[in-house]
């Protein structure tokens, strides 16, 4: 078995990842369409850091999560986890899988109601390690302590816990195999504000303590602003702007990022921005528009946008895929 050395490489290196799904059409004789759920995402994620993925519903965030956690394999592209190739690599699959764990959105549906917390936590150990029963128990209690659950709760069933506590169990389960990377797909959106705060604090504490890397998917930009180091904004299967959190929040350049920030609701009136209304129809990943896939809804569209797809390039300290990025630097929206 190859030893995974995660100190020398970025823990995730993704190059041009793609995932296409076949979708059957109404009516016979029609051949299945190919749905480009993810159409070329590249990024690196270092130890102890958080990359937040944001974007329109259906833009491919969960698909990306399924590829990174190796639940599905990419149609195309390269993925290295801890420096090891993770595409079509049967030999190292087991060890790679242990390095990446996932926390899902729904703290209610994602835990088996018929199993006790202890059993839920020990399951990954049973499958992946040779530990004996008492070692497994010890490990489970150790992790429970880390996420703020008490010993007595080892024998309880999920329904005896509140939403926030269940999310702690889900985080604990993800940590059982000492992963380097935790993929969190909307981990706090089902929680009330105070439980959300507890869960976010927990995630940040664990990151400091265990040097975890997070791939954090969320629709809530105020949460993203708090927890992330880097952001990747996606639109229709592709990243359109990515880079340092502060750079992007202070001066978003891609027109879609601008619209996203402007559409974020705020509690306090002074934080509210004038909403940018996205006109035009939502594009379909089954039949994406030519040129820049955002052009039909973009307020800054020029002729070139209609036929030439923009490529991701560096402008003003971030990666951006927009023909007019330079012009937008001086735009003061």
């Amino acid at each position: 078995m190859t030893d995974v050395d995660t100190t020398q490489y970025p823990v995730i290196k993704a190059e041009n990842l793609k995932k296409y799904y076949p979708v059957s059409q109404e009516g016979f004789l029609k051949k299945p369409l190919s749905l480009k759920a993810l159409d070329g995402a590249s990024f690196t994620l270092n130890k102890g850091k958080t990359l937040a993925v944001v974007g329109e519903s259906g833009c491919g965030k969960s698909t990306l999560a399924r590829l990174i956690t190796m639940i599905e394999s990419p149609t195309e592209g390269n993925l290295h986890i801890g420096g090891i190739n993770a595409v079509g690599n049967k030999k190292d699959k087991k060890i790679l899988r242990r390095k990446v764990q996932i926390v899902f959105q729904d703290p209610y549906g994602s835990l088996n109601p018929r199993k006790k917390v202890g059993t839920i936590l020990e399951e990954p150990l049973k499958i992946n390690t040779d530990l004996n029963a008492s070692q497994m128990r010890e490990k489970a209690l150790h992790i429970m302590d880390k996420v703020g659950l008490s010993k007595e709760q080892y024998n309880r069933y999920p329904h005896m816990f509140s939403g926030g506590q269940r999310q702690r169990i889900a985080v604990a389960r993800a940590l059982m195999l000492n992963p380097d990377i935790v993929v969190a797909d909307e981990p706090v959106s089902a929680l009330d504000v105070s439980v959300q705060a507890q869960t976010l604090n927990l995630l940040m504490d664990l990151q400091d303590e265990m040097n975890l890397a997070y791939l954090f998917i969320s629709h809530d930009l105020s949460v993203v602003r708090l927890i992330s180091d880097d952001i990747m904004v996606m639109y229709l299967g592709r990243p359109v702007e990515q880079g340092d959190k502060n750079v992007i929040f202070e001066k978003p350049l891609h027109p879609y990022t601008m619209a996203l920030l402007a559409a974020t609701p705020h509690v306090d009136v002074k934080s509210r921005q004038k909403r940018i209304r996205l006109s035009g129809e939502l594009p379909s990943p089954l039949n994406p528009p030519p040129g820049c896939t955002f052009h039909r809804r973009c307020a800054y569209m020029t002729d070139i946008c209609k036929h030439k797809p923009p490529h991701l390039r560096e402008v003003a300290n971030r990666m951006i895929s927009c023909h007019n990025a330079e012009k937008l630097i001086n735009n003061s929206h």
């Binding site: 959106s189 089902a190 559409a263 996205l278």
Partner: peptide, 10 residues
């Protein structure tokens, strides 16, 4: 609207 991004939510 919890599962929706902010532009669609709006």
């Amino acid at each position: 609207t919890t599962a929706l991004d902010v532009t669609i939510q709006a």
